[in-house]
């Protein structure tokens, strides 16, 4: 898998470079926002950072229409899928790390105005990362089963249906409620471990589904 990761890093690096003005602008805006508002807004920072880095790590191979080329390389389809999962996970971690770096930078620049992140806020960032992980695990089988554009469309339709069902059935509004639920669960060690274990199990199921579907794809 090392050559695949190296290849992904080379392309991601170039994409990051292209996106860097936009990313830098958002991050600077957030630092300014934190300093001027006398407080941190970790979930907002985390949302932006993770979203951008997931886009880079997860979507770059899909949107560049290089799947046929990748499948012609001397690697197995299972390795291609595992690499995609690993990169998505790394993107998520990088987003989380960047969130903490931005919050820490604001605090270092103006310690009197931007407070250091509280444990509560850090928990929010982790909860958001878990929501993103849940979304990725749900999303990745779709893009491995279908070609990327059709996979994104199929996932979007499935997500809308799931949201409609959760609103009608339980009055839950999807990601926001999931985020609040994860926040609550993370407050206690045992339920937090259970949540992480459950997510890992869901991740393994997602990986198995993606591997099975990708082995049957035509390029």
């Amino acid at each position: 898998m090392r050559p695949l990761i190296r290849m992904a890093w080379a392309t991601s690096r170039r994409l990051l470079l292209l996106m860097s003005p936009l990313l830098a602008f958002y991050l600077a805006l957030m630092v300014v926002h934190q300093v001027t508002k006398r407080g941190t807004d970790i979930p907002a920072i985390a949302f932006t950072c993770m979203f951008m880095l997931i886009i880079v790590s997860t979507f770059q191979g899909l949107t560049f229409d290089v799947e046929g080329f990748m499948a012609s390389l001397p690697v197995t389809r299972a390795q291609l899928v595992r690499t995609k999962y690993l990169l998505s996970f790394l993107g998520l971690l990088a987003g989380l790390a960047l969130t903490l770096a931005v919050a820490g930078l604001a605090h270092a620049l103006a310690p009197g105005r931007a407070a250091a992140p509280t444990p509560e806020e850090l928990r929010s960032a982790v909860a958001l990362a878990l929501v993103d992980a849940f979304g990725l695990f749900a999303f990745l089988p779709f893009v491995h089963a279908f070609e990327p554009s059709r996979g994104i469309l199929a996932f979007s339709l499935a997500a809308i249906l799931a949201l409609a069902a959760s609103l009608a059935g339980w009055g839950l509004d999807g990601a926001a409620d999931l985020f609040r639920f994860f926040q609550r669960v993370l407050a206690q060690p045992a339920p937090a471990l259970g949540l992480i274990g459950g997510l890992l199990a869901f991740g393994l199921l997602s990986l198995s589904l993606s591997t099975w579907a990708y082995a049957r794809r035509s390029f």
Partner: peptide
């Protein structure tokens, strides 16, 4: 492949 598509940014 016919009409090869490789990584466009590289």
């Amino acid at each position: 492949q016919e009409s090869p598509t490789l990584f466009p940014l590289l």
